[in-house]
């Protein structure tokens, strides 16, 4: 399968703290990859590095075979859903969507599935500071999927969403995979990762502990649930 993102020798320090200690991996299209790991294992930093929010100390990131550190054009192929959506207080939902559309200027048809499913269009006139955390998550999700990107990066996507909305999001994710997209998800909820992941990457203290397909993991350990798989691998 086609490697869309390739990471080579990625290192990052925050002050004296080494957060990423040399990451080498690649992500292929048509996959859902769950990035797991304990707190402070470097998950968010890895994602942020791919997105260009954090600039690596050394190493390379290739997107469709091209070096992309310190560039920005490749980001039009990425949809990002942050962990906590926080937007300018007095901006209206409508204005936010308008603005991002304005910035991305994409000619292709917009994907408004989530927008409709979450009934966001009826709330376009509402200002951000009046919204609940859940609604903000919905806004973030809708934004991420809107432009039909080849890669979706979702940081704790279902945290804060109501069960129905979360369920719908999962369906949407599976749907996008079937269209041949790469979806990177960080999550703490094992059952969720278990349910949808094709591959699992486990980060520990800035290094990849393992990065394998879910199926292989289950076969290797003989366990059926991802949670059990992890405890088994990590305990030995």
């Amino acid at each position: 399968m086609e490697k869309i993102i390739e990471i080579r020798g990625l290192k990052k320090k925050f002050g004296r703290l080494e957060v990423l200690k040399g990451i080498d991996c690649s992500f292929e299209i048509g996959n859902i990859v769950s990035i797991l790991g304990p707190n402070a294992s470097g998950k968010t930093t890895l994602i942020k590095t791919i997105l260009g929010m954090v600039i690596p100390d050394c190493g390379e990131i290739l997107f469709s075979g091209k070096q992309v550190v310190n560039t920005f054009a490749y980001k039009k192929h990425i949809g990002y859903m942050p962990q906590i959506g926080h937007y300018p207080d007095n901006m209206k939902i409508g204005q936010l969507f308008e603005m991002i559309m304005d910035i991305r200027q994409e000619k292709t048809a917009l994907d408004t599935d989530l927008l409709k499913a979450y009934h966001l269009e009826n709330m376009f006139h509402k200002t951000m500071h009046t919204l609940s955390g859940g609604t903000l998550q919905k806004v973030s999700a809708a934004l991420a999927f809107m432009f039909n990107p080849d890669v979706l990066i979702l940081d704790e996507p279902t945290a804060g969403l109501d069960p129905i909305a979360a369920e719908y999001l999962k369906e949407k994710i599976l749907d996008e995979r079937s269209k041949g997209k790469l979806i990177l998800i960080t999550s703490h909820i094992m059952s969720e990762a278990d349910e949808i992941s094709d591959k699992v990457m486990y980060l520990f203290e800035g290094q990849i502990k393992f990065y394998k397909s879910l199926q292989d993991l289950k076969e290797e350990t003989g366990e059926l649930k991802l949670g059990k798989v992890l405890t088994k691998i990590l305990s030995c």
């Binding site: 039009k76 990002y80 942050p82 937007y87 207080d89 910035i103």
Partner: peptide
């Protein structure tokens, strides 16, 4: 106050 918003903007295809 707009730190997260800045992050969102950085994730978009525009230069810093």
């Amino acid at each position: 106050n707009a730190t997260e918003f800045t992050e969102l903007l950085v994730s978009q295809p525009i230069s810093r």
